[in-house]
Write a protein that binds this DNA or RNA. Sequence first.
DNA 1: ATTACATCTTGCAAAATGCAAGCTAATTTA
DNA 2: TAAATTAGCTTGCATTTTGCAAGATGTAAT
Lengths: 134, 134
Amino acid sequence: MTKKTKIRQTGCPVAFGLDIFGDRWTLLVIREIMLRGKRTYSEFMEMEEEIATNILIDRLKALEAEGLVNKTRDPENRRSFLYALTKKGRDLAPILLEIIIWSGAHDARSFALTDVLEKIEADRDGFEHELRSE
Amino acid sequence: MTKKTKIRQTGCPVAFGLDIFGDRWTLLVIREIMLRGKRTYSEFMEMEEEIATNILIDRLKALEAEGLVNKTRDPENRRSFLYALTKKGRDLAPILLEIIIWSGAHDARSFALTDVLEKIEADRDGFEHELRSE
DNA sequence: ATTACATCTTGCAAAATGCAAGCTAATTTA
DNA sequence: TAAATTAGCTTGCATTTTGCAAGATGTAAT
């Protein structure tokens, strides 16, 4: 796994968060799990943004190392693994939510998750609770 | 300015947001403006995370190009410029807020903005409103 | 005219990302 | 039971981004 440069241990919570998920891919993997119910390496590989295999595995390992996901063998397919969010990972829900709201407000073309946006607008707390619950 | 690769125009609002602020520095610059009242290039250079001059100017130009900040000459010091958040930029407040909350919950060492965290816990909406207002 | 301040630019090194190919283990098919 | 397939990686190398150090430009004070 690529050594993650953390020059940011300044005690600032913004910097702390960015050290963990402030890159171009981590939150997209979280999105796949949280919003789309993806659970396996090959399911993640199907995301439309075309993540490279080495980057994906790197992010999955980093997420596991940081305690945001855990990895278990799939009992129903023993050559597969299941990645699931921990509480620490599920707690990213409000951040993802606010990003979606911001983009909804500022990008005319945010069409892909329109249904999600509508749900959020109708009942933000309900939607958030839905995301956080396993 | 470094050409920003936006391979992510998939319509997903999460990807859209990350294309704009999903890197290791952009949200730290926003933090400087929003939480610390910084307004000039040299004030940004003083941040404790030690951003390089070329990266800083690159992010400022990108933020301006995306319409998140605007740049004006300082009327009181004509060799300086003032960077200020636009509405689109101020609308990032809830995202920053949620990052702070997440780190507050998951990092034992998030001491630097403890006062901010306490304010948020006491009155989230009030604090958010305070951030958003110029 | 000289110095200082504030903002930026440039060149090069290091690190992260991206791409293509291939490798390993578990399982299915012939 | 040997060959093919599936799932999850690993590796090597090219490209892009980031980081570092030095210097250039424009404004203002002495």
